[in-house]
Design a protein around this nucleic acid. Structure first.
Lengths: 189, 189, 189, 189
DNA sequence: CATGAATGAGGGTTCATTCAT
DNA sequence: CATGAATGAACCCTCATTCAT
């Protein structure tokens, strides 16, 4: 009814918005995946980020690209957190629980795209963290010598998946129980 | 409308086909769930069974009904197999690996529809099996007294999920490794 | 699990059940149409009648056949009720309200199949009733001479449709109001 | 997968097509409702408008939204036409006949979704028109003081429905006859 | 002649992806 | 480079109709 500018579709903010949008998309994806799992509508990510569909596709041409971006942040954080000499395998389990929702989405995804190099690279970095932790713990006599890095990877993977599967209000309980099991399994004999 | 018999709609085989169709549907569902998880297109089951959509809905009014039917067979088999006094928790793990693909779908199911009575009933039967085995093993001194039935359920659940997730040609390896972990976790201290 | 007669599908009662089924179907149709209008699932009629789908189709090869059968009973009742010298146009309106749900279903149907002879025959009988009533009322000076039988048919048709459309708990109100309008329109000038 | 451009999926005309599509959808709906009533296949509207299913849902998230959009135009026109001091109740009946096909769909709509606020708002506007006309006619002594706005609404509703039900080549006749009836019913006593 | 399962087409809705502006 | 509408395929579910027993 006004004589000008009938609709204002949200001002095209120009190229400057690029990196900002990218960040918004990753954050939105983290939330959406956490709530709805990996099969949440892809378009829901754009909507939640307050960004056009097209921009989502420009930044992340496929589902894997987006998931990798999300998980990349998690791995980076993990690398940082697990660096100090005082960090333990148990810290890794704790961290896994915290990140379970995203981790699981990532794991789900990876099992579709196992051979995607982007995915493989991230997997290697994660494995590196686990490997360094394990070696350190074994040296300190806090982890059994029977353990190999694959065991640790399996443990964290299963833990994350189990948490993600669980009823939200049982997660604390489940986490405690599962960590106790792996404690026993990891202990020196 | 057409001058010749253009389509051959597939002969109505009559009610006699009923039980046969039911069996075909369950078998098809087993395969479809194994390949695509519980959210595989419902219609894919009908197609794979070579049965009309409508018949699928007649036999199983909703997803849960079908999943329950599939898993019912598994639980029944489990109850039979675990009955002898000689069966162990380790047998349960073995069996879990064998049924992993279906088991995972069931776990998915249970975590989605926890309050559906049909699902709850099956869950109870499974729990019963685990419970009897655990008690027997603890009496025999082969399982630690710290263990509760929840621990066993978590272990089998995680094992099944992990197997289902894994690359088919790594499953044997994964199974071995995970079972070894739980062996340690279950052992008396 | 019993060794014989696993399922007893409801004893085929033989040809004797024919007429009984027919009656049950008509009664069921009356209810179903009243509740769900003419687009209620055709099969719902069979279910409500406690009769196989096939029997429904045998007795009434199409929707029209069933609707005609239902309405035939209504018209017969109408003929009986309107015969006494004391019955008036107003009685016809009253009766129309009572039968509104079925009447409307019939009218709906008729507008699809206007040229179906079965339908036309019933229409004639209804028209006959209206015609006799109108003549009698005009002779008695209770209806205006401007009125033709078409006017009466339109009035009853619209009344029935309006009732059928209305919220169930407003029907009484609507009926009163509409009948008052037609009272004025029918009165001698 | 194919060696040549096998399909020509119909060129995405871009957002510019938006408003045009919206208009096309409303126009198509008007036709489809007129032919098939309010339960005509929703998808038929998209097809007739030459627009994808998805676009239909984007513009009108549910049946009611579409029906309201269609009828909104009619009510607006009505408000405009009935504003002059010279317009009468009879003009309203005339107009109702002209819009009968759409009016009926609207009546159906109103009777189904009486509690939807969008529908209620339109109903109020229509009632407003009828109310103003009635008051004016009563003041001028052209309508009886026994009449209430509900009577007018019932009359237009029944008239529209009856026209919509009628054989196209009898509509003129039916309209004349029904309007004459309501003339008598509306007249001052 | 009754029964009720089988069939598949039809219509509803969602969502991944493309593309004009 | 961002935007958001358009598109259509895919899945869901219901129901009219047929037909073996």
């Amino acid at each position: 009814m006004s004589s000008q500018a009938e609709e204002q579709p949200k001002a095209n903010r120009g190229p400057a918005a690029g990196p900002e949008n990218r960040r918004a998309l990753i954050a939105a994806a983290r939330e959406v995946y956490a709530e709805g799992g990996l099969n949440a509508p892809f378009s829901a990510v754009a909507k939640r980020a307050g960004v056009g569909q097209g921009s989502l596709y420009r930044h992340f041409p496929d589902r894997t690209a987006l998931a990798v971006a999300v998980y990349e942040e998690n791995v980076a954080e993990l690398e940082r957190l697990m660096e100090p000499d005082t960090s333990t395998l148990d810290d890794l389990l704790t961290r896994t629980v915290d990140q379970a929702m995203v981790s699981t989405a990532f794991v789900e995804l990876v099992n579709g795209d196992r051979h995607d190099p982007r995915v493989a690279a991230l997997g290697e970095r994660y494995r590196g963290v686990a490997s360094r932790l394990l070696a350190r713990e074994q040296r300190a006599g806090r982890a059994g010598s029977h353990l190999e890095v694959e065991d640790v990877l399996l443990a964290t993977g299963m833990l994350a998946a189990e948490i993600a599967r669980s009823d939200p209000d049982q997660r604390l309980d489940v986490a405690t129980r599962v960590r106790a099991l792996f404690h026993l399994a990891f202990a020196p004999r």
